[in-house]
Design a protein around this nucleic acid. Structure first.
Lengths: 249, 249
DNA sequence: CGGCATGTTGACAACCATCAATAATAGTGG
DNA sequence: CCACTATTATTGATGGTTGTCAACATGCCG
């Protein structure tokens, strides 16, 4: 049916833009305390820039030092560029996430959209200067950064001590936790990232990622549907393959 | 002489303990703003526990949730325990460092002393509740956590995209920055960690670490003196081998 | 339906882990 | 102070996991 054809892709990846007001509102509801005076609220608002990133486009943040980013809509990856086109994805982000983009040092960093995305960017120094008077905001940022750190440490463990098989299992479980939809015993994933993205996140090649997914499919641990659809048939089987600590017996 | 025997090891790795007052004073000078009232100062003091860790001993922090740790003296490693005695070191810490120890999730974490160390531990929740009224403290923690995150991301890049040779170069440069002593053109390092620690930090084996150090020695990039002494003869040569972004030409 | 980007599969090679033996170091006791 | 010993580090030989190169298949979009 025509109707299916026309509506389906749009439903999966809506391209409707949101306004600055909408984006900032989402941000304020999550980060700013309700009791904030209008004046301070406005000053935060003045620091925000809305960037609309079409799928596959990226945002270089070289100028202006460290940035604080709020993802209002879409999905993004934070990429570190090492030498000679060796890129490492240090994190995936989903709507509602707040994260910091480091200023360039030994590597340069960029934010790329996996889907059409709307993000708010703040200069970190300005933001912190303003937040200094609002302990709640600082506390939110601190908790958030601590969470990012925990995720980053888990990634470090995966990259340092796990084989390809285990890394895939860890990745799928992490995605299930963040964007999975429960579905009669299993978990449904609509991955916004390509095999290349997965491989650049896990320190592998796309071929290895593909082989491990095939293997998991052969073992009836997952099912794949097209390029982006994955069903975790039995999450506990994945946990067995993830090389985590055994649960206390 | 008895006297020599008794004092010599102590000279390299002094075992003299410091008092709680000394340790807390070091902490306060670094983290707490000078203008803090005595009452609040005291409340922070009441949250602190001094732990004296002899070399090679470790501190399990399973109970009590996330901890905030201040290292007053010595050197420590933060170890994540994955399954089956596969450990990954997620960070090394030196005097003055503040860091958080996650509560156990998929992995358990412990702090181990590379040298005799004195650390102050705080329950993170209690500490944050108290710091909520002191924006300066929150800001310090936030900056500190952001720095930890940056370091962790750089480690992620190293483990995901670099070979053994590059990882060693990155490691030595990072150590030079943190505990190196300039010495006529080169940098002198007295590494507190063993080859095993280095390998567990870099996601390699001790044999590979050893081989790469030998290779760097053959190439006249470093000199080794005993087990812990390393001189970086020409840091720029190490940078060439670290796989960093080329400096802007 | 057709073209192209993306993903999968296969053959082979490289790098690093593993296993094993030797060497060096640091601390101990004579 | 020096020999002795246990621990730690180095060196060598070999194999496995994953990267690389290549060909092919699939799915997505116009």
């Amino acid at each position: 049916m025509i109707w299916i054809k026309a509506i389906h892709p749009a439903a999966r990846h809506p391209t409707r833009m949101i306004t600055f007001a909408d984006a900032f509102d989402l941000f304020a509801r999550r980060v700013l305390p309700a009791r904030l005076t209008d004046a301070v609220h406005l000053r935060f608002r003045l620091l925000a820039s809305l960037r609309q990133l079409a799928r596959e486009t990226s945002l270089e943040l070289a100028e202006g030092g460290q940035q604080i980013v709020f993802l209002a809509r879409g999905a993004t990856k934070l990429v570190a560029h090492a030498s000679q086109s060796r890129d490492q994805i240090v994190g995936f982000h989903f709507p509602g996430d707040v994260f910091t983009v480091p200023e360039p040092d030994n590597y340069s960093y960029s934010v790329s959209a996996l889907r059409d995305s709307d993000i708010l960017t703040f200069n970190a120094a300005d933001f912190l200067a303003l937040a200094a008077g609002e302990a709640c905001v600082l506390q939110y940022l601190l908790e958030n950064t601590t969470l990012s750190l925990r995720r980053c440490r888990e990634k470090t463990i995966a990259l340092g001590r796990k084989n390809a098989r285990e890394r895939l299992a860890v990745f799928l479980l992490a995605m299930a936790e963040r964007i999975g939809a429960e579905q009669d015993g299993g978990v449904w994933l609509d991955l916004p990232m390509s095999r290349r993205d997965i491989s650049e996140s896990l320190g592998l090649t796309i071929e290895t990622v593909s082989r491990q997914l095939t293997r998991l499919r052969d073992e009836r641990v997952i099912e794949t549907m097209g390029r982006s659809g994955i069903v975790l048939l039995e999450p506990s089987l994945l946990r067995d393959r993830a090389g985590f600590l055994r649960e206390a017996a």
